[in-house]
Amino acid sequence: MELSLAEEYLLLALDDVSGRPLLSAQHLQLALAGASVAELTLQGSLDVSDGADGGRKGRFRTTGRATPTDPLQREVLELMHERRPKDAIRKIGQGGFAKRLREALQRGLAARGVLREEQVKILGLFPSTAWPSTAAH
């Protein structure tokens, strides 16, 4: 089974047994955003303009060479166009989109049997969801 960079990072960032993140939600979401952008670049969907093609130098641009099949990756691609790399990760790594990206990655890994969704309570009071590894049990 082939995993995306974001999926691989997510697996590294979750405790296998408890399914809880090993770093803050903010840091995890920024890292997943960065991994998603890196994946698009490696696939040839996104690159940084050198200005020779009429694009703004130092800004992300869509290449048209590869179109992601995943709807969230297509959305990341659209959000990156014409953004400076230093601003791009912050744009998708914070707020509602970042949460949707993380949840989609978790649910996708659960659907393939890598993680399992588990309802837990924090301090015995607050409902939360953990994503333990199926290999850990």
Rank of each mutant, 00 (worst) to 15 (best):
E8S: 14
L101H: 14
K91F: 01
P68H: 10
Q106D: 03
L72W: 00
V17Y: 15
D53H: 11
H137C: 01
A31K: 02
A13G: 01
A66N: 02
R112N: 07
R56C: 05
E2K: 09
S128I: 06
A104C: 09
K86G: 06
G113T: 04
L23W: 06
L23M: 12
S133F: 15
A35Y: 11
K57I: 11
L12T: 14
L12I: 10
L10P: 14
D16G: 14
A52K: 12
G58A: 07
A66L: 05
R59D: 00
L79P: 08
S36D: 05
H27S: 14
R112T: 04
D87V: 04
R116H: 14
L123I: 03
A135R: 05
G44T: 05
L10T: 11
A66E: 05
M1C: 04
D50K: 08
G113Y: 00
W131R: 04
L12D: 15
F126W: 12
P132S: 14
E118P: 02
R107L: 10
G93W: 09
E2L: 09
L101T: 12
Q106I: 00
E117C: 10
R74C: 08
S45T: 11
W131T: 03
L72I: 03
R112G: 03
L105G: 12
E2N: 08
A136Y: 15
D15M: 14
H137M: 02
S128E: 12
V120K: 14
L109R: 14
G51F: 09
R74G: 07
A38S: 13
A135E: 15
E7T: 13
R83L: 08
L10E: 02
R83C: 04
G96R: 08
A35C: 13
L22R: 15
V37R: 04
G55E: 09
A52C: 03
G113Q: 01
E103Q: 05
A98P: 03
R90K: 06
K86V: 09
S45V: 03
S49K: 06
L79C: 07
R59V: 00
A13P: 00
S24Y: 10
L72H: 02
R84P: 00
R102N: 11
